[in-house]
Design a protein around this nucleic acid. Structure first.
Lengths: 215, 215
DNA sequence: ATAATATCGATATCCGCATATCGATAGATT
DNA sequence: AATCTATCGATATGCGGATATCGATATTAT
């Protein structure tokens, strides 16, 4: 079945393809070549073909390329943009508040149904249209509402506890913004979104540049 | 010189090491073994040694391990947590506002000195203690203030324009939150922080799980 | 109809990074 | 002091993903 055999890396390129294809369709294109996509996205055309081949049964035709509409449908289907997945967010600090206020997630098929925090001063407040609930009810909430995605935006030292609680509540995939490696049983996915790590890469680049400049 | 020969992947693991080491130091440990680190962080001990060897001149000693304090200093130095790097943020929408409000960056040595937006309704507003400036002054601001890091949180369709402008202003590294592949000349680093891509990975996992369950 | 061009899919190669192996050395134990 | 154990660094192996090559096929032009 589609999806299983797609590498994580390829999956992460899908949103880029999708955006390009939507633009192309808006420009009136009905078919597009892997060469053109590759050029626009700075990807090898072979890689583009390989990625797209895994998306949907729609084959590319020599001479013309791929059918834009079919690819768009295929990728949207693959990414789940047409369906809705519920998620909970834990940790209504500055980053958590940020994500709660962000309007873009619904476009990606994700719906944050509830937010949690352990601090009494935050509980009860409404952020991004959702009331912040007490963290003690987290596990039950997940179980009762069949929530399978958890977003962790708590401080590092409590991230593991929150993680374990989410899993006990039935969560299968966790988006972790805390700068710690979480320990989870097999079958649970952790997707780390480590801002510190990204900054490290930026920092390395600047350092290398100044080193190169100064000898 | 330290830093150049460290892979991007290794660099991204550094914040995890640092956190672990700080915890260890707080617990009174003066030395720590690669085995212990690897176990805590779910990393191969060989990889840990290789990463740490690249950090600082401090060698690990057989029998006891690495000196905690020296490692911490080395990593902090490597990551630039002791120095200050100025950055500008472009796009004060919901995500941009989120990042501006986030207090954690200073801890990582990054200082967002100014925010920009093209919308008249947003310019002049104060977010996270910084006034939002008009986007037309972006390039000059970067040049005049020697800003070398740009953060892009604008909609996808204008991200490339903003990117080019940042580069003309002298920016050397860009943290890109827009879901597009930016085209830049050699020597400019783009670090993509694609939330849609992360969600894609979560989505794939859930899909695979339900497929596995339903046959 | 025929030739030229664009594009595809499949196979093979290459590369970076993670992992495994192994001899050497510091510290602990008896 | 002799021996044992933990840990290190260096070298070799393995794997996943990106890239290159090549024959085949569709479209376009003459």
């Amino acid at each position: 079945m589609a999806g299983t055999d797609i590498s994580k890396q390829a999956m992460m390129r899908m949103p880029y393809y999708l955006r390009y294809l939507r633009d192309a369709e808006a420009s009136g294109a009905s078919s597009v070549s892997s060469t053109a996509i590759g050029e626009a996205l700075r990807l090898n055309s072979v890689q583009v073909r390989k990625d797209l081949a895994a998306v949907c049964s729609s084959k590319g035709k020599p001479g013309s390329g791929f059918n834009v509409r079919e690819l768009i449908s295929g990728i949207e289907e693959l990414l789940g943009y047409n369906s809705r997945v519920d998620a909970v967010l834990v940790g209504a600090g500055s980053l958590g508040t940020a994500l709660l206020s962000y309007k873009g997630f619904s476009e990606y098929g994700m719906n944050i149904v509830a937010a949690f925090d352990s601090s009494a001063s935050v509980c009860g407040r409404v952020i991004g249209g959702r009331e912040v609930l007490d963290a003690s009810s987290l596990e039950d909430f997940c179980r009762n509402n069949s929530v399978h995605i958890g977003i962790i935006t708590v401080p590092a030292d409590v991230a593991q506890d929150v993680c374990s609680e989410l899993i006990r509540g039935g969560v299968k995939a966790i988006w972790n913004f805390a700068p710690v490696k979480l320990k989870v049983p097999d079958g649970i996915l952790i997707q780390n979104e480590n801002l510190a790590a990204s900054l490290a890469v930026l920092s390395r680049h600047l350092k290398n540049m100044s080193n190169a400049a100064n000898g």
